[in-house]
């Protein structure tokens, strides 16, 4: 959090704006560690101003048409290209309807003027503990689609974020899009962020659930960010919902599991103890609202 640069100017680098993925990949291949991908620029240019990231070449991928894809296909889900801005995503009607938690997360992410520029992939790749996108993406079981010299690969967001500012992406690779699986008519989701008098959430929580009424098929995914160096999935709390119990008992037991199994971090935004308290309160609220809407 102690960011802040004494510098106004960026170090020198070369700017490239390829118009195809192939050209972009070959520039990366040529420059390897010396190259960085530029999409919205919000995270990258800040880090460069602070001299925390060095780059000799910036590869602007906004000229590559296929990366600007925002597409929902029934039965297949939602694909969000890596140059689609956050506000463009918000404007897609399917988001609010089927991917509510992601809609809510993006709505609270930074601010309108930044959302006109920054991208979901950019937010995710920044991988700071407090960012908003990972919790809903993991809760939706989203995948990151990556292209590199070895070809195409897809990795779950859950394993894509490896730690503080660390993602599973080689310098020669490009994230082309994020895919969120199709949500059925029974699925419900919610995103809660506690940020009163702060820019970042002290606790961010996403819950995605489906088939709430039929316990055999019931699925509930609970994911937090801002409570540890990387997002935390509450697996033990999720397992509570595999049993055939009245909602009130499941909710109470899930909250107990969260209290007993997750130890949130302390930083200069909040103590671990306070975060733990917020997690319980927020989880209670989120789960109740999820069941309420089922």
């Amino acid at each position: 959090m102690s960011f802040g640069s004494p510098y106004f100017t960026l170090p020198r680098f070369r700017y490239e704006k390829p118009d195809t993925l192939e050209k972009a990949l070959s520039i990366l291949q040529e420059n390897k560690d010396d190259a960085r991908i530029l999409a919205g620029g919000v995270g990258l240019l800040n880090l460069m101003k602070e001299r925390l990231v060095e780059a000799k070449v910036l590869v602007d991928i906004k000229g590559i048409k296929e990366l600007h894809k925002l597409e929902y296909k029934k039965g297949q889900g939602l694909t969000i290209g890596s140059t689609v801005t956050l506000n463009e995503i918000l404007e897609h009607p399917i988001l609010k309807q089927r991917y509510t938690a992601l809609y809510q997360a993006i709505s609270t992410l930074s601010d309108n003027n930044l959302r006109n520029r920054s991208t979901l992939v950019g937010d995710l790749c920044e991988a700071l503990p407090w960012i908003d996108s990972p919790a809903p993406l993991i809760a939706f079981d989203a995948s990151v689609n990556i292209t590199g010299p070895e070809g195409y690969r897809s990795v779950k967001v859950e394993s894509f974020i490896k730690g503080m500012a660390e993602v599973d992406l080689a310098p020669v690779e490009i994230v082309t899009s994020i895919t969120l699986p199709e949500q059925t008519d029974t699925s419900r989701s919610i995103y809660l962020k506690f940020a009163r008098g702060t820019e970042f959430g002290l606790v961010n929580l996403a819950v995605v659930a489906s088939n709430l009424k039929k316990y055999v098929d019931r699925s509930v995914r609970i994911v937090y960010s801002a409570i540890d160096t990387k997002p935390v999935r509450a697996l033990e709390a999720e397992s509570v919902f595999k049993e055939d119990l009245p909602p009130r008992d499941m909710i109470s037991r899930a909250v107990e599991k969260i209290r007993d199994t997750i130890e949130p971090m302390s930083d200069n935004l909040a103590s671990g103890q306070y975060r733990k308290h917020l997690m319980q309160v927020m989880t209670y609220e989120a789960l109740t609202r999820i069941f309420e809407g089922a």
Partner: peptide, 18 residues
């Protein structure tokens, strides 16, 4: 303004200083 034990200011920006 939050200082650490060594006198470093932890929030010299408008994200940390709301």
């Amino acid at each position: 303004m939050q200082f650490d034990q060594q006198g470093w200011l932890l929030n010299p920006n408008f994200t940390g200083y709301y």
